[in-house]
Simulated assay, not measured.
Amino acid sequence: MLSEREIHYLAMNLVGKELEKEGFEFLSVNSKLKKNPQFVCLREKKLHFVLVRAILHPNDPNDYDVVFMQTMKEHAEKFEAKMYYAGVGLVNANDKTRPLVNGEPYIIDYNGLKEIV
């Protein structure tokens, strides 16, 4: 069974690859659980904070804690940064009722970065 940390790393890896592909330059990467934001990036001379969450089935990766996200947005604004949420849904591909297991396939539900405005 994958640990909470390994699941978090899966989500961060996916989001990190997308950020690279979209031309973001990493200034800081924080992979520790419960430390936010996970990515501090620069793109087009603008600072961006990205909060990554691994969300296990049956929870919706598009849902987030609005109050907490507002707190993070206020933190980002102190640095004149944009704030993004990246929810990555994960589920065991063989059986949605089973946990994620190393070596078994999984399904990703990821709809990209959501800017918090």
Rank of each mutant, 00 (worst) to 15 (best):
T71L: 11
D60F: 10
F49E: 03
E104I: 11
F68T: 10
K32A: 14
V15Q: 01
N92M: 04
V50H: 04
P58R: 12
E18G: 03
A11Y: 04
Y64M: 06
Q38E: 14
R43D: 06
G103H: 00
D109N: 12
D95F: 03
C41Y: 01
R53F: 10
Y85G: 05
A81R: 02
Y85T: 02
V101F: 04
V88M: 15
G16I: 06
M12P: 00
K96Y: 11
V88S: 12
K17M: 11
P99Q: 07
E80N: 15
P99L: 06
E44W: 08
K96M: 10
E44T: 01
L2E: 07
V117A: 15
I7G: 08
N59P: 10
E22V: 02
E18N: 07
I116P: 13
R53Q: 13
G23Y: 06
E77N: 13
Y84W: 08
K46Q: 14
T97N: 13
V101N: 10
L33V: 02
D60Q: 08
K96A: 09
M83D: 07
K45E: 15
L47P: 11
K46S: 06
E20Q: 08
L47W: 00
V66I: 15
G103W: 01
E104D: 10
K46P: 10
G23R: 08
V52W: 09
T97F: 02
I107N: 03
L47A: 03
V101P: 02
Y85E: 03
V66Y: 02
F68E: 14
R43V: 06
S28A: 10
G23V: 04
E6A: 09
K78E: 13
I55R: 03
K45Y: 10
G103R: 03
N102Y: 07
Y9T: 00
N13V: 03
N30Y: 02
K78D: 03
P61M: 01
D65L: 00
A11I: 05
I7T: 12
M12G: 11
M1H: 09
D65V: 04
L100S: 06
I7Y: 00
L51N: 15
P61A: 09
V50C: 07
I7W: 00
N111D: 09
H8M: 04
N94G: 15
A93C: 05
H8K: 08
E77F: 04
N59D: 15
P99C: 00
L27E: 09
K73D: 07
H8Q: 09
R53L: 04
H48E: 03
T97S: 12
H48V: 13
R43T: 02
P99N: 12
E4M: 08
F39H: 00
E4T: 07
F79L: 05
E80I: 13
F49D: 05
E20I: 04
I116Y: 10
K46I: 08
D95A: 13
A11T: 09
K35D: 13
E44F: 13
K34G: 05
G16D: 05
P37Q: 06
R98K: 15
F79W: 12
R53Y: 02
F68S: 12
H8S: 14
H48A: 12
V52I: 05
